[in-house]
């Protein structure tokens, strides 16, 4: 890290394997990554001047996820404070995003006061926000009625939607209402037939060169079945978008960044703004990593900037942690 200089950073696009390995040694210390077409590039330490050198695109937006307002246990007794830090980070971005997306688990327990707090904090970014529910947002007595009443205006079915911005087609999928129980097979979330039929029609008329962003709370590929980290019928959804030249899948739920490339489709889970969860299979169960010390917590929390450069196809993704 000590031998890193600005020259290295400006030449990041030409990074060789040795350079890449050197960068990999920095993970967890606040390095900004970009991912373009599946090839990771480093842009420098968070807060460093280099981070501001991210390519200026035709469209920039920010993904936040899993704010879990109402959680009150170790390692983060105050997720409102860390969400505020995330929003402050967005407000300080030199290139302001066109809008924000929140990929679910806004609240911890589907309570109005928890959503009130989250909305109040997020509102200070002064941006349009596209929300998706996490399973924690549909845990009210009426199975998601409260979420849909609050966040579901102008959406289809049980909260799904699509919109276009800057030539990119965005799709918000809901995979927290239906599931396959884990009695005889894996217990996994489902998108469900009605929504899948809608999706098929939604993308039918689009040109294959339209960049697609597919968002959902739970991962749209099976990361770890034993912990329910997957979506049983995601394959069908992906089948409808595989003809497109650039598909970017953005998910939350697992409170850590895991990425995968499959043809033209890149999959990315996001950090939480509240607490980390263990890497798949490294603990007896998922759930908050309560052993993380207070002074390390922010290394595990973060936001993601997505930057489309017109005519370049796949976007550049920059994941940055909350560490100052």
């Amino acid at each position: 890290m000590a031998d890193r200089d600005d020259k290295d950073l400006s030449g990041a696009a030409k990074m060789n394997r040795r350079g890449l390995l050197k960068c990999m040694a920095w993970t967890g210390t606040g390095v900004v990554w970009t991912l373009s077409g599946g090839v990771p590039r480093t842009l420098g330490l968070i807060g460093g001047a280099a981070a501001a050198e991210a390519p200026q695109g035709a469209l920039t937006f920010v993904q936040i996820s899993d704010s879990h307002i109402g959680f009150h246990l170790p390692p983060n007794p105050d997720p409102s404070a860390t969400l505020t830090e995330a929003i402050n980070k967005i407000k300080a971005m030199p290139t302001q995003p066109a809008f924000l997306v929140h990929t679910g688990d806004i609240s911890h327990l589907s309570k109005e006061e928890q959503w009130d707090d989250a909305d109040q904090i997020i509102k200070s970014a002064n941006k349009q926000v596209f929300f998706l529910p996490g399973e924690h947002d549909v845990a009210d007595a009426d199975n998601g009625k409260a979420y849909l009443a609050r966040y579901g205006k102008n959406t289809k079915g049980k909260g799904w939607y699509s919109f276009d911005h800057g030539g990119v087609h965005f799709i918000g999928l809901i995979n927290v209402f239906e599931f396959q129980p884990g009695f005889k097979s894996a217990g996994l979330a489902k998108i469900g037939d009605e929504q899948l039929e809608w999706l098929e029609k939604d993308v039918k008329g689009l040109s294959a060169s339209t960049p697609i962003v597919l968002m959902a709370h739970l991962p749209l590929w099976t990361i770890y079945e034993q912990w329910g980290w997957g979506t049983q019928d995601a394959g069908r959804a992906l089948g409808y978008v595989k003809r497109f030249g650039s598909v970017t899948v953005l998910n939350g739920h697992i409170h850590q960044i895991i990425q995968k490339v499959e043809g033209n489709v890149t999959f990315h889970t996001a950090d939480s703004t509240a607490f980390p969860q263990p890497a798949p299979g490294t603990a007896p169960a998922p759930g908050p990593m309560k052993e993380v010390p207070a002074n390390e917590l922010r290394k595990y929390l973060g936001i993601r900037t997505v930057n489309y450069v017109r005519g370049k196809g796949a976007p550049a993704l920059i994941d940055s942690t909350l560490i100052a």
Partner: peptide
């Protein structure tokens, strides 16, 4: 009476 956690349907 088989049951699940409706938040984490793999818990049975």
């Amino acid at each position: 009476y088989p049951y699940i956690c409706t938040i984490h349907p793999y818990m049975v």
